[in-house]
Amino acid sequence: MARYAMVIDTTKCVGCQDCVIACETENNVPEGYCRDWITTATSGKFPTVQLEIRSERCNHCSEPPCVTSCPTGASHIHDVGGVVLVNHDECIGCKACLASCPYDARFIHPDGYADKCTFCIHRVEKGEDPACVSVCPTHCMHFGDLDDPESEVSKLLKERKYHTNLPEAGTGPNIYYLI
């Protein structure tokens, strides 16, 4: 079994949104929507300021409430890597999953179904990195299998300090931010 995760180095990320735009073209995200986005958290008082810039998207949670709340099973955990996906033609567009995601990672595609980041499973299954990861000019994003202790992501989590978003929501997010 594999457990896919992203490890993103916030100390290198410059918030350039390249990851967002690459996702748009790679996945034909409808105009005006986004599957990933940049959050900037600014703290402190000028001039002693800290920034944390995060490239955010669906966390492919280990305990995904979007899956448990889905009445049709359209939202499901993929066989490979624990990736959370939506089957478009099982989805009725009830938005229960949107309402249950604490990260607001989902949206309703103009065609009616719930949509979100797929971890670029179509690329990953071909052995490529997700589009956002492969485009990032600062090389701050890493994708891999947490169940493999030799993977880059596992190693990074072993060596570096990190946090996840909203661990207190109990969803078991799989996007890790190195700090």
Binding site: C16, D18, I21, T25, S134, V135
Partner: peptide
């Protein structure tokens, strides 16, 4: 469809900036 950096190019080293990626 999309545009990516040319890995052989010494300037982009296979990665474009967001404007380049959105240039399509």
């Amino acid at each position: 469809w999309k545009i990516e950096g040319n890995p052989k190019d010494p300037l982009s080293k296979g990665r474009l900036c967001p404007r380049g990626t959105g240039g399509v």
